[in-house]
């Protein structure tokens, strides 16, 4: 196995771990939210200040979380992943 091949495998594994982690976080938080809706409606109906219930706060949090996860992924891949893939590409060209 060439160096480039080993590097590529490492980069691939790193991206795969991040992707699975972020997807899992999103799925668990979202399923948790639905379970709260299904099993504890009064809790989500708790009015924090007039006009604002816990449910609405959590709902907006979920939308912001989806954004945040995407930004984390895009930021990491744009800065780390792309650079490492570019290095592998350079290696492969050099090795030919």
């Amino acid at each position: 196995m060439s160096d480039a091949q080993i590097h590529l495998t490492r980069v691939a594994a790193a991206r795969w771990r991040l992707a699975v982690l972020l997807t899992t976080v999103m799925t668990l938080v979202y399923v948790g939210f639905i379970l709260l809706i299904a099993f504890n409606k009064p809790l989500l109906g708790t009015v924090l200040i007039p006009g604002l219930s816990l449910g609405i706060v959590l709902g907006v949090f979920l939308i912001l979380l989806a954004w945040a996860l995407i930004l984390i992924y895009v930021h990491w891949t744009n800065t780390h992943y792309d650079a490492r893939v570019a290095a592998v590409r350079q290696d492969r060209r050099g090795g030919r």
Binding site: L22, T23, Y30, L62, A66, L69, I70
Partner: peptide, 10 residues
């Protein structure tokens, strides 16, 4: 909206 992190990651 929550499907989009899945789209970008996978």
């Amino acid at each position: 909206l929550v499907g989009w992190p899945v789209v970008v990651c996978l």
